[in-house]
Amino acid sequence: MSTLQTLDRGLEAIDIVSRRAAGISPAELADELGVHRAGAYRILATLERRHLVTKGDDGRYRLGSGALVVAGRFMGQYRTAAQPIVQDLADRTGHTALVSIADRDESVAIAVAEPAARGPIGISYRVGTRHPLEHGADGLAILALRPEQPDDIDAVRAARLHGHAVSRGEVQPGTAGLAVGTGAVSDTDVESAIGLIALGQPTDLDLDTLLPVLHEARERIARLY
């Protein structure tokens, strides 16, 4: 399929700017894109007019408020698309289901569902709940998909080995968690996981039954990107 080169370069420029915490100069952007400096200025001027980048007093360009608006809309659309998948996972397993994303060193729940046929005792988990990545199956599953590090904790190493993460009462006492990572998408660097929260201990989880359903849900979530 043919692409529009100018649009492609503009999108590539946004990606490059987003990766430079200290911002980027027009000359540096020109080198990154392989274009003349005048071309980089035109791209930056166009993006700045759309508030996708902004020029600082130091002459370097950083993401602008327009990027935040687009990101917010992405999360809203993603949550809407993911919710039916999460609900189906909850209904099929009888456990609370969630999708979470990594935000720096924390996991944040962006879609949560409880089974429709909920018993007298269930688990409530709110959208927006945060916890350290090293606590909870969803965070461990995200960390397990990252490149191996010398200081990885044992739970991350185990999750990487087995292809899924299990946790015990780290986020909510008396619960067990099971999750698989959905990966990081190169265009957005969104790291996410889909998982289940159940009452009891990890040994109470029927992995032979739950994992196939969880992997199926993961594939459906992955296709949303």
Rank of each mutant, 00 (worst) to 15 (best):
G163I: 00
A81V: 01
A155Y: 01
L199D: 03
D152G: 03
L44W: 10
A137P: 00
G10T: 10
V108I: 15
G10I: 03
L44Q: 06
L224Y: 12
R220A: 12
R168I: 00
A137M: 04
T182H: 07
A158F: 06
S167D: 10
L211F: 03
A179N: 06
L98A: 09
E106F: 08
E170G: 09
A217P: 02
L140M: 07
T182C: 13
V112N: 00
V86K: 00
L11C: 04
L145S: 13
A159C: 06
S167G: 04
T175I: 04
Y41R: 15
R146D: 05
S25I: 11
L33I: 09
D138Y: 04
D138H: 10
S192Y: 05
R19Q: 11
A97I: 04
I142H: 00
I142D: 04
R220E: 15
I101N: 10
R146T: 03
H162N: 10
L143T: 02
A176S: 13
A38H: 05
L11T: 02
E216K: 03
T175S: 13
A71T: 06
G66I: 07
D57I: 11
A30T: 11
V112P: 07
L210M: 11
L143P: 00
I142S: 00
I221Y: 11
D15A: 10
L52D: 14
H95E: 11
L224W: 14
V35C: 04
V35G: 02
R50F: 03
E148S: 10
H135C: 07
T6R: 15
R62Q: 13
D8T: 09
S124Q: 10
A116P: 07
D103H: 13
R92T: 08
V35R: 09
H135K: 15
T80L: 14
H131R: 09
D15Q: 14
D15T: 13
Q83A: 11
A30D: 08
L161H: 13
A40R: 06
T93A: 08
I197V: 15
A67Q: 10
Q149K: 12
L33A: 11
S167F: 05
D31Y: 04
G183A: 03
I24L: 15
K55P: 04
R19E: 14
T203L: 08
V53Y: 05
A165N: 02
K55E: 08
R218V: 01
G128M: 12
R20S: 07
D91M: 09
A141I: 12
G66C: 06
L52A: 14
I85L: 11
R104L: 13
A141K: 02
L199E: 03
G56P: 06
L63D: 08
T80W: 08
S2T: 10
A67V: 13
G76Y: 07
R126C: 11
P147W: 00
S107R: 07
L4E: 12
A27G: 15
E12Y: 02
A40Y: 04
R42A: 14
A81C: 02
A90G: 11
H36W: 02
A97W: 04
D187I: 05
A111N: 01
E12T: 12
R42K: 11
A137C: 03
P150W: 09
P115L: 09
T175Y: 05
Q83F: 02
I123L: 11
R126W: 09
Q172V: 12
A111D: 05
L214W: 14
S18K: 15
I85S: 05
I85N: 01
